[in-house]
Nucleic acid binder design. Structure first.
Lengths: 156, 156
DNA sequence: CGAATAGGTTCCCTTAAGAAACTTACTGAG
DNA sequence: CTCAGTAAGTTTCTTAAGGGAACCTATTCG
């Protein structure tokens, strides 16, 4: 398969997908987020092919999402930890979880819960406007061209 | 390539990825969201192969994200429109855009802007807690097992 | 010494993505 | 009436990415 590269598009969705658009990457990110930071741990948890996992980790490190860190010099052992950039990307996971919980979780209920540090309660994340703090969902916005728009592009 | 199916995992991220985890789908969703609802429109905008676009649209319709609607009987013509489930999925796009703007947009600035209906201003979406309404980012939560957790699973 | 462990790499096979041509069912121009 | 055009796909062929299993390297443990 030849995969089209998105990085050149004047579209922040495409540029984000260029980093984690391939199906395994968000799951790898999730594993690192919840503390599974080592190669074999992630490989066994996800059942991903070792070859593909090695490729993805390399790409995520190159993209500045993860950092490969030595946790033992003899024998040489490494683990993967989130950078600031990578941690912010995990916000995307929260929103994915929310949608998945609402539309695909079924009768058993959500597989995991999130306890919010600020209030100590189990809460759900919701999108709100940084200006007026009211809910700001996709259904609550109009799309307008911005400064980084290329001449004939229309997308986001 | 044989692609592993994620649908069986007790993980809302995996189940969400099963619907839109493949790289083109979020871009197709974006196009429909901003009003590009017809096959040739989307194909030309994205430069996606017609074969792959047909496959993706079929899957998104089967998954309840899009609805295939006839807008002309003679000649028979169809367009794709968002369902409620699909529109909620677009929240994910807003978060992707936000991350892409912050980390990949560069000097030109964001390619598009969002005007919030509630306040009429250009604003950015932010994640907040439905309980206490304080910011609720990935860095602000602890992960706990929920009711839908399968026995040995660890993920989200 | 031999086995185990962590973190990969290499090999081969299958299958999905890409590109371009083709199909179907109409409409409208000449 | 014929011919070009349009929308929405489908088909065919090639290329390359994903999957699985085996292999490799360095080191520690029994």
């Amino acid at each position: 398969m030849q995969r089209t590269q998105f990085a050149g598009l004047a579209c922040s969705i495409a540029r984000t997908l260029d980093v984690i658009g391939e199906p395994w990457s968000p799951l790898i990110l999730r594993d690192v987020f919840v503390g599974m930071t080592r190669f074999d741990q992630i490989q066994q948890d996800l059942g991903i092919s070792r070859k593909v996992l090695a490729q993805r980790l390399k790409w995520l490190v190159e993209s500045g999402i993860l950092e490969r860190r030595e946790y033992s010099a003899r024998p040489p052992r490494h683990e993967y930890v989130l950078t600031a950039k990578g941690l912010e990307l995990c916000d995307l996971l929260l929103v994915m979880v929310r949608w998945g919980d609402r539309w695909t979780a079924g009768a058993a209920g959500p597989p995991v819960l999130y306890r919010h540090h600020a209030c100590g309660q189990i809460g759900e994340p919701e999108l709100s406007c940084t200006r007026c703090h009211q809910p700001m969902r996709a259904s609550d916005v109009d799309v307008l061209p911005g400064p980084g728009q290329s001449p004939q592009a229309i997308g986001a």
